[in-house]
Design a protein around this nucleic acid. Structure first.
Lengths: 129, 129
DNA sequence: ACCGAGAGTGAGAATCGTTCTCATGAGACG
DNA sequence: CGTCTCATGAGAACGATTCTCACTCTCGGT
């Protein structure tokens, strides 16, 4: 069973925010935006909804250096991110060469079930102004 | 001034543990090993010492998926890690091609001050037995 | 439309890793 | 040896996330 979630006001509100955003946002940031819009949603519910969307692979989660996990609506399939440190603006990138390199390095050292994490950070042209 | 730290019993105990380990270990794990050895060191001190060593670039820190930060004595210079999910056994790897690829991708999208994170995870041959 | 079962919600408590506070302890150096 | 600090550690505080549980609302059946 594909576990179809109920269509509640809160879920609609959260997904609406995610549609508007084009960068990564933390649970607290999303909760704050909702409050400002007058669409009160409990923080627990924000976390639950985000986690459900991540499980459904509709969101990408990314743990920042400050310990906060940030979320963003992303395309399906394996890809990496080029993220602006200032504003969070994000470009999805693919690197077939990197994938192959990682797999071959792991195999060369006898490691199996290989996965990897790769994120690129920088300052985007807008934020440099 | 290079901020030379004092040579205390606690600092010696922590660095000794790090010398023995060859994989990544969390602050709590290190604290537990110290307790078992009878070398009681406060958890705060373990954290402080680890943080100081990271700042001095004598340790690499790596935030795992479970939220814990793990530490490991590492060679200097830019490198990445191939880490066993089970036992933490780690191989340091370099990928000049990846570095160049990341920089060029970032530049192509107008991002500056580029950095990146890249870690490879797998199951090592020993743990597969 | 109207039930009714059960998933969804939310306020607050709990958890977990990490950092802070501050009174006490111990290196380093003369 | 004495003194000046920095280091230590027990416990409190903190910030992100998860859990609890009584109450609410959606949805499928009638």
């Amino acid at each position: 069973m594909p576990e179809i979630p109920r269509n509640t006001r809160q879920r609609r509100a959260v997904t609406a925010i995610l549609d508007d955003l084009d960068g990564f946002a933390s649970a607290r940031e999303i909760h704050d935006v909702l409050s400002k819009r007058g669409e009160s949603v409990g923080l627990s519910t924000v976390y639950r909804t985000l986690q459900a969307l991540v499980d459904a692979e509709e969101l990408d989660a990314l743990r920042a250096d400050d310990g906060e996990t940030r979320f963003r609506r992303c395309s399906t399939g394996h890809h990496h991110h080029l993220v602006c440190r200032q504003c969070g603006r994000t470009v999805e990138v693919e690197g077939p060469t990197v994938e192959r390199w990682a797999d071959s390095v792991a195999a060369a050292h006898g490691y199996a079930d290989v996965s990897h994490t790769l994120e690129i950070f920088g300052t985007c042209s807008t934020c440099r102004a």
